[in-house]
């Protein structure tokens, strides 16, 4: 074939390809959209992938990051899209349960950017089972309960769990205790703190924990006193001084943070103005 013939042939091929490509790209986009609404059958994939589960998990993880990394997808994603992404993340976590990233991704991304908050928790709980040394997973659960689901008691429980794991940051102990306190779960907080105090060797931390223990003991003590007051007088005290006046207690204990114990009639709880060290008064 002559030179011109060859060049013409190459041009023809180029022409055919570029002519058809745009339409095909469009069709592919459409399929893409569809794919995000049609969910993979988890149990089947688990069955079929047996033996290569990690590799399949990696593949799906890549798809997760692909979608999430695509700004256009994030902008246009609706509930269904996020639901699909969550299912994919869940699938990855199921196929390779010892893989930390999907749990982290689930806990960090979904509650903030989508409407899926409590749905993330079962995934994270599974993560706790498989990665028992990982403090960040229960921490995330705790955070979600605290911040998004407004359940301080459960939040406290999970933060406590997190704080008990090795390498967890110190402030988790304090956070757990405070959450318990705010949830009105002073007994739980006390138990938790006493255990922490026993297991901590660091002197500064020990001191901190002891202080909080004192506060909680005081609050529990005062709680008991208030109850007695209600039983005897039939109404709630205005002020903690009422307890002293009626002789139920000798005096109101001193708050170690420099704050003041008081009775909150709205919440019907004994609280401290320093909020367990949240606000420190100058000594």
């Amino acid at each position: 074939m002559r030179k011109e013939g060859k060049i013409l042939l190459i041009l023809l091929c180029l022409f055919l390809i570029t002519l058809s490509k745009p339409g095909l790209l469009l069709e592919k986009e459409r399929a893409y959209q569809l794919k995000t609404r049609l969910l993979p059958r988890v149990d089947m994939i688990e069955l079929l992938a047996d033996g290569y589960k990690e590799a399949v998990a990696d593949y799906f993880w890549m798809r997760v990051t692909l979608y999430y990394g695509d700004e256009n997808w994030r902008k246009r994603a609706d509930d269904e899209d996020w639901g699909y992404l969550l299912k994919l993340t869940d699938l990855v976590a199921r196929l390779n349960p010892y893989f930390f990233m999907p749990y982290y991704f689930a806990g960090v991304v979904f509650p903030w950017e989508s409407n899926y908050k409590k749905e993330v928790i079962p995934i994270l709980e599974r993560g706790m089972k498989y990665l028992p040394d990982e403090w960040r997973i229960p921490f995330l659960i705790g955070f979600i309960y605290f911040y998004f689901l407004d359940s301080k008691k459960r939040a406290a429980y999970y933060i406590q769990l997190a704080s008990e794991k090795k390498d967890s940051p110190e402030y988790l102990i304090k956070l757990a205790a405070r959450l318990y306190y705010e949830a009105g779960e002073e007994e739980s907080a006390l138990l938790f703190l006493e255990q922490m105090e026993r297991s901590t060797s660091e002197p500064e931390l020990k001191k901190e924990i002891k202080r909080r223990i004192k506060v909680l003991k005081d609050i529990l003590f005062l709680k008991g006193a208030v109850q007695k007051y209600v039983e005897t007088t039939g109404k709630e005290p205005e002020d903690l001084e009422d307890l002293v006046r009626t002789g139920i207690i000798k005096e109101v204990p001193r708050e170690p943070y420099g704050g003041r114990y008081y009775y909150d009639r709205k919440d019907k709880r004994v609280k401290t103005s320093s909020e367990l060290g949240k606000r420190r008064k100058e000594k």
């Binding site: 190459i10 023809l12 091929c13 055919l16 390809i17 002519l19 058809s20 339409g23 095909l24 069709e27």
Partner: peptide, 18 residues
């Protein structure tokens, strides 16, 4: 899309011939 069938054919032909 009805155009898909002819488009995919042209696309394939372009590459195969080359």
């Amino acid at each position: 899309e009805s155009s898909y069938y002819s488009e995919i054919l042209l696309y394939t032909l372009g590459y195969v011939i080359f």
